[in-house]
Design a protein around this nucleic acid. Sequence first.
DNA 1: TTATTATATTGAACGTTGTTTAATTGTGCC
DNA 2: GGCACAATTAAACAACGTTCAATATAATAA
Lengths: 204, 204
Amino acid sequence: MARRSDHTREEIKAMAIAVGRNLIQENGLPGFSARKVALGIGYTVGTLYNVFENHDDIVLHINAVTLEDLLAYMEKRLGDDDQESHASDLDVLKGLAACYIDYARENYNCWSALFEHNLSPEAPLPVWYGERIDALFGFIEARLKPVVGKDEAEARQTARVLWASIHGICALTLTNKLTLVGVETVEGLTDSLIENYVAGLKSR
Amino acid sequence: MARRSDHTREEIKAMAIAVGRNLIQENGLPGFSARKVALGIGYTVGTLYNVFENHDDIVLHINAVTLEDLLAYMEKRLGDDDQESHASDLDVLKGLAACYIDYARENYNCWSALFEHNLSPEAPLPVWYGERIDALFGFIEARLKPVVGKDEAEARQTARVLWASIHGICALTLTNKLTLVGVETVEGLTDSLIENYVAGLKSR
DNA sequence: TTATTATATTGAACGTTGTTTAATTGTGCC
DNA sequence: GGCACAATTAAACAACGTTCAATATAATAA
């Protein structure tokens, strides 16, 4: 068969991403393979390689959807109504961190695929992928407005420091690379981070 | 042939780990395979599977060596002479962060293998692997003594927060998952983290 | 010294993976 | 109806993790 035109190129792409994301969700990144995706969408690997560049390309597209999903998750839970809320700066930040941690927990396999998969350092990230990251930081920076001053560059830096730190705590904890004892919890660690970092910001 | 006794079980293990670490160092985790290791040590995959449990087991052993190597790197660069040094608390911490970042940069492939490789969440980390992590934190906590109070639990928590945060900044930056612009550098971000976090600690 | 036992080592096999390519088949156009 | 184009396939390739019967060697017993 050829040009079945059952689906357009874009439809095949979307179906493959959906099926692939499902595979990762169920069995982690190692549970993903081009052949399983092809089987899942009723096509052959050849067709997949006609639509995607290679293995990395598919995973990257799947991860991009996860980034979108994460952003949607945070928007839904934290809303856009920053201004009218009466939460303190600290609580806003803690809520942001808790939200990220919850997403990572609830979607562990998809979330960890975000970091288990890396391109070779010399290969540049596709622009469309960078845009998903930037969209995420746009949201975070917006929520940081009350905490940090007007200075644009400083706001950028603060957002990145806080976000990367929260991610680091979340990543090491969920992947069992941070030995916790007794009362320690992920949220306890991020709260400590936020309380002290913000107190430091305000004391200057 | 059988029981060639050219090498003991332990020697084979050590040779395999060395060769495997070399493979990862040269071509990243995807450049590693049991067959290449076997070829490199002059044995067959079968022998490898006689000595190691499986693929994960080998990678875990390699990563454990990397953890040891990282600790040795930090001990060598930062020394044990905390007391006699005249560096400020801040500088001690910044030095710790800079040291970690340098190691990650100089040993990118081995370092990133530490995080690209994950066991399934239900499978427990081997104790001997946890011990390497704990040894690392022992060193870090010791260097944090001057910064944090005497309270043991709080010292533990502070060490973990700071270390995980530094790691998060380092990880997102080196793997191109944090869009930096212009003047921003990894060290700039970690310095901001440390300055504000410590200022927060002292202001309470 | 020889025979026996135990086991370290091998090689081949199995199913799976990413990736490429020639051959096929359906679609739109003249 | 026939022609050209391209979507789709099936098959192939080398490499992967993993297993296992067969084998060769060392240690032990006779």
